[in-house]
Simulated scan of single mutants.
Amino acid sequence: MKRTCFILIICLLFGANSFAQQGKYGTYYDQRATLFEKLPITPSDIVFLGNSLTDGCEWAELFGNPHIKNRGISGDVVLGIYDRIGPILKGKPAKIFLLTGINDVSHDLTADSVLVMYKQLVSKIKLGSPKTKLYIQSLLPVNDEFTRFPKVHNKTQIILDINKGLKLLAKEKGYIYVDVYSHFTAPGTQSMDKKYTNDGLHLLGPGYLVWKGLLKPYVK
Rank of each mutant, 00 (worst) to 15 (best):
V180Y: 11
D193R: 04
E172S: 15
E145Q: 14
G128R: 07
L134C: 07
L99F: 08
R3N: 05
S191M: 14
L140F: 10
V219S: 04
V78T: 13
L215E: 04
L139A: 02
F48W: 01
V152D: 09
P150Q: 09
E145H: 09
R3K: 10
H153T: 04
V180T: 15
N70H: 05
L201I: 02
N103V: 00
M1S: 10
N65F: 08
S106R: 06
L203D: 03
P43H: 13
T189C: 08
T100M: 11
Y196D: 01
T27I: 13
F36G: 11
L109M: 11
E58P: 11
N17L: 12
I136R: 03
G213M: 01
G213E: 09
K119A: 12
N65G: 02
S182A: 10
R32Q: 08
F6V: 04
L203S: 02
K195Q: 12
G188M: 10
L166M: 13
A20V: 13
Y208A: 01
I46N: 00
V152H: 13
I176D: 13
A33H: 04
L139C: 00
D45M: 06
V142P: 13
L98M: 02
F97L: 07
G101S: 03
I158W: 02
A170F: 07
G205I: 00
Y196H: 00
D55H: 09
T185G: 09
K119D: 06
D76Y: 14
Q22D: 11
L13M: 12
T189N: 07
P150F: 15
D199C: 13
Q157E: 07
K38W: 03
G80D: 12
L49C: 04
S18A: 14
M117C: 13
P87I: 12
M1P: 09
Y135K: 05
L35A: 09
L204D: 06
K124T: 04
L127S: 15
E145K: 13
K38S: 08
Y175L: 10
F14M: 10
E37P: 12
H202F: 07
R84N: 05
G72V: 05
A16I: 03
L62E: 05
I81F: 00
T54V: 14
P43C: 07
D55V: 03
D45R: 09
G207M: 04
L168D: 05
A60Y: 01
K131Y: 13
M192F: 04
N51F: 15
F97S: 01
E61A: 14
T4S: 15
L127Q: 15
H183Q: 07
K171E: 14
H107I: 08
E145M: 13
K38A: 15
G72A: 06
F63A: 09
V122N: 08
L8T: 15
F149Q: 06
Y135M: 02
V105H: 03
K95S: 03
T185L: 08
G205T: 03
D83K: 11
K164R: 06
L168W: 11
Y177G: 01
P43A: 09
L79F: 10
M117P: 08
V114H: 06
D45Q: 05
P141Q: 03
